[in-house]
Amino acid sequence: MNAQIALLLGQDGITNGAIYALLALSILLVFTVTRILLIPQGEFVTYGALTMASLQAGQPTALVWLLLALTLLDGALDLLASIRRPHAWRLPRKSLVKIAYAAAMVGLVNNLPLAQLPMALQALLTLALVVPLGPLIYRLAFQPIASASSLVLLIVSIAVHVSLVGMGLLLFGPEGARTRPFSEQGLELGPVALNSQTLWIIAASLGLIIGLFVFFERTLYGKALRATAVNRMGARLMGISPEMAGKSTFVLAALIGTLSGILIAPITTLYFDSGFIISLKGFVGAIMGGLVSYPVAALGALAVGLIEAFSMFWASAYKEVIVFTLIIPFLLWRSLTSRHVEEHE
């Protein structure tokens, strides 16, 4: 291996690593606030990428019908709940707004000249379509069992993942898709030719990480989410509702996932079932951070990207084996250092 190749691999590794880092942060966020290990994190990535691709191809994506269906289901459940509790008539109005939004999306997707839109609008539309799925999924699958054991939450998480993958096949078909790069020109940095998409990814990831940091450190809502993660009962007593916290984290998770999908779609061909492996690498990072530390998780995920890139060079067939076996030493370290705690479930 010469320096040229090393730099190239490094660039690859950092690009993927940045995405894994975003996913690791999102997984960690969802886990600490809701105790859910968000296995479907990767589906937001593929949905984002494939929706973007179908918009660029000028196809009115079928995803919008999924959005409408879930919104209607959510509205029906809210209606049911408000009938049972006479004093809460505020809810159905909220549901109407949500249904109107979904209906508007159906209208937009079917009438806009999708392929001709500027790329920024296409990305925006993709976000507008995919991100609402996050809180809807929380509402439908997790909210009714928010206080169940973490094993039950994990099972439901896996079940949602399985369903979403099947749904992805139905909505986007079995073909992989790639989107147009955001811009054509690259950057010459001495001997290295930096791919423009790489720069976009690194810049966007950094921007997002800074944005998250500001949100959690400076805003009351961000602090409220952190508070829920630190002490659920304490947060409830402050009037921070677990439902609100759950939905908010799922909005963030869907946003991060979809954005990651849009970012990597120009450099990687994604299929309906690519999400799982991608999010698992985020999990490897999150586990390195002990499922508590954000910076360590991000660094860990970055390391996963680099290791993956370099093992591609040395032992390409064993790439996945190496990445997933990597987790074992960390698990071992955890198991040796963590003291035994009695589970209450």
Binding site: L37, L154, I287, L331, S335, H340, E343
Partner: peptide, 19 residues
Amino acid sequence: LTLRLSGHYLPLGTIAWGL
């Protein structure tokens, strides 16, 4: 390697070696 792990690490660990 994995049975001493508590809570979530065990299922995640099984996913890792399963894969």
